[in-house]
Design a binder for these strands. Structure first.
Length: 289
DNA sequence: CATGACACCTGCTCGC
DNA sequence: TGCGAGCAGGTGTCAT
C-alpha cells in the first residue's frame, strides 16, 4: 500500500523513537509474512538486538541492527508500522503481525499490523542485503539521480509509461497513486509506450515525479483507506490529489470529466483526455463517459 | 524478453 | 437484510 512518501513518513516518525533502542520480547502473531527466515530465527535475532538505524529503500522499511542483520519490512497494501506508547487497545492489536517491546523506556511497543497480510518480513545479512537492494531501481529523490539517469531507467521498452514508472526494478518507490498524479502533472498519456516519449515529455515527467513525491512527503502521505503515519495519524495529501480516486470528476485544469481505465497492468488509471491525450483508439477499455 | 493470468489475504461497497 | 461480485495503495511466479 504505502508508496515512497508514506514509507518515508513512517521512517522519519519512527527513526528517533527506535534508533539506539533495544528490542525485547518480540512476538510474531502470524508467520506467513516471513520470507527466507524461520519464526524461531527471527525471534532469536530480534530479542536483545539494538536498532542502529532505521532507513527506507524504495517502499521498504529497513532496520539496521547491531548484529549486522537487516530486518526489512514491506508494507504492501495494508501494512502499518506504529510505535505505541501505551498498552495496545483491542482494535490496535487486531491484525497485528509482529509486536516488539523497546527496552529502557516507558513500555513502548513497535507494532507491524497488516489486515490483508500481503506484507513481508525479511531478515538479511550483509551479503543478502546487497543482492536484495541491487534488484531495485534508483531512488528518484536522491541528489545524484538526474534526468539522464531517469531517461535511462525508463528507456528501452515499448511498455506503457505508467507501468514502467511503477516497475520497481527501474525506478524505486512510485506506485499507482503517484504514477497517476505525476502523469497528469506532466500532461503525459499513461498508455504511451515509454520509448516514444520525446525529450521534453521525459523532462516534464521527471520534474512531475519529484514534485509529486516531495509534495506528498510534505503532507505526510496520502490516506485513502488504511495508511497511517508512524504515529498512527492519517496523512494529508489526499486533499491535493488531482486525478487518483477522482474518476468522473472535472479535471482541475480544464473541467473535462476525468476518465478511468483498467487497461494498463490491470490497475486503475485515471486521466484527462484533453490534458493528457489518451489511447489512440478512444473507447477502448475506458469506462467513464 | 514481454505479457497476462493468477496467487497471496481480508474487508468494504455496491447491486440485486 | 442478505449475499455474491468486484475492487483495493503491491509484488512474485508461472505459462505462453
Amino acid at each position: 500500500m504505502p508508496e515512497l512518501p508514506e514509507v518515508e513518513t513512517i521512517v522519519r516518525d519512527l527513526a528517533p523513537l527506535l534508533a539506539g533502542r533495544t528490542f525485547r520480547q518480540p512476538q510474531l502473531h502470524k508467520s506467513d509474512v516471513l520470507r527466507g527466515v524461520s519464526r524461531r530465527r527471527l525471534l532469536l535475532t530480534l530479542d536483545g538486538n539494538r536498532v542502529e538505524r532505521l532507513t527506507r529503500r524504495a517502499k521498504h522499511v529497513v532496520f539496521l541492527l547491531a548484529s549486522g542483520h537487516r530486518m526489512v519490512i514491506q508494507l504492501r497494501m495494508t501494512g502499518s508500522l506504529v510505535v505505541h506508547r501505551r498498552p495496545l487497545r483491542a482494535a490496535e492489536r487486531r491484525y497485528a503481525v509482529l509486536e516488539v517491546g523497546l527496552a529502557g523506556g516507558g513500555g513502548e511497543r513497535l507494532v507491524f499490523r497488516d489486515v490483508r497480510r500481503l506484507g513481508t518480513i525479511h531478515l538479511l545479512d550483509e551479503r543478502a542485503w546487497r543482492a536484495y537492494t541491487d534488484r531495485i531501481g534508483g531512488e528518484p529523490l536522491d541528489a545524484d539521480f538526474d534526468l539522464a539517469r531517469f531517461r535511462t531507467a525508463l528507456g528501452g521498452t515499448t511498455q506503457a509509461i505508467k507501468k514502467v514508472l511503477m516497475d520497481q526494478r527501474r525506478l524505486a518507490g512510485v506506485g499507482n497513486i503517484y504514477a497517476n498524479e505525476a502523469l497528469f502533472l506532466a500532461g503525459v498519456d499513461p498508455s504511451r509506450p515509454a520509448d516514444r516519449l520525446d525529450a521534453d515529455a521525459t523532462a516534464q515527467l521527471f520534474d512531475a515525479v519529484r514534485t509529486v513525491l516531495h509534495g506528498a512527503i510534505g503532507a505526510r502521505g496520502t490516506t485513502v483507506r488504511d495508511y497511517r503515519t508512524g504515529t498512527g495519524q492519517p496523512g494529508g495529501y489526499q486533499a491535493a490529489l488531482n486525478v487518483y480516486d477522482r474518476a468522473g470528476e472535472p479535471c482541475v485544469r480544464c473541467g473535462t470529466r476525468l476518465a478511468t481505465t483498467h487497461a494498463i497492468d490491470g490497475r486503475q488509471t485515471t486521466f484527462c483526455w484533453r490534458c493528457q491525450g489518451g489511447p489512440a483508439t478512444p473507447g477502448r477499455g475506458t469506462a467513464d463517459a
